[in-house]
């Protein structure tokens, strides 16, 4: 059997198939990256809403809180399928890739929001008080004092989350997105042995994820200020 599978290898790595896999790998990476970038933007907004001290904003605060707590407790596959089938029944004509981008963004917003909150809260209250007595507005103290001190704490775990999320995006294959896992399925239906194509893709994921994970660890050490290493997701 092994010899039989080994004989497939030259056939598998034709230029056409390599390009297919390379494109799929880019899609895999961009799914996670888009999720994290959108997550960073929306997550920051959610966190700001959640941390706001203005009384009149309480409905927004409650919504932000609920969103963050609830979205982290729904499987990615279920979120993805909600959007996938939801778009169908509502008659929206979204491509699978668009559906996947929305899903990854919606999920990572909740996870990244928590990382952002930890980072922003790590900035001492006394720093903000000092800004306040010198007549900084809320926004000025956020932009000039809080954010510059928080981002070295926030970035490493967000990067860690990005690496972690790369693996979750394998589920996007269920919506028909042509990322690595879907590419394996396609090659499988083209007649290549399942063991060969899935092992190949498994290896590709490893080649992508492992160096990035190491880089993330390095980043965390270098920016050092991170008081809590949060590259693992916490629910």
């Amino acid at each position: 059997m092994l010899a039989f599978i080994a004989a497939e290898i030259p056939r598998l790595f034709t230029i056409y198939n390599v390009i297919l896999l390379a494109k799929a790998a880019v899609t895999t990476l961009s799914l996670s990256a888009v999720g994290c970038v959108v997550g960073l933007l929306c997550g920051t907004l959610l966190t700001l809403a959640r941390m706001s001290r203005r009384r009149s904003l309480w409905p927004l605060k409650a919504l932000a809180f609920l969103y963050i707590e609830i979205m982290r407790r729904i499987p990615f596959l279920v979120t993805l399928m909600t959007f996938y089938f939801g778009a169908q029944v509502l008659g929206f004509n979204f491509s699978p890739l668009e559906i996947a981008f929305v899903s990854t963004s919606v999920i990572s917003t909740a996870f990244v929001a928590e990382i952002v909150r930890t980072g922003l809260q790590a900035v001492k209250a006394s720093q903000i008080e000092a800004a306040e007595v010198m007549n900084f507005s809320v926004w000025q103290s956020f932009w000039l004092v809080r954010l510059p001190q928080a981002w070295p704490i926030i970035l490493p775990p967000v990067f860690g989350y990005f690496v972690l999320f790369i693996k979750d995006t394998a589920l996007a294959s269920q919506a028909g997105v042509l990322e690595l896992t879907q590419a394996a399925k396609i090659l499988n239906t083209k007649g290549f042995s399942a063991s060969l194509v899935y092992a190949t893709v498994l290896l590709l994921y490893f080649v992508i994820s492992y160096p990035l994970a190491r880089l993330g660890g390095h980043l965390e050490k270098r920016l050092g200020t991170a008081r809590h290493s949060r590259s693992r997701r916490t629910v």
């Binding site: 693996k167 399942a194 063991s195 899935y198």
Partner: peptide
């Protein structure tokens, strides 16, 4: 920890 659980199960279910 650096490969997707989904693909790990693919290997077990479809590959083995």
């Amino acid at each position: 920890t650096n490969t997707p659980q989904l693909v790990q199960i693919y290997v077990i279910y479809f590959g083995l």
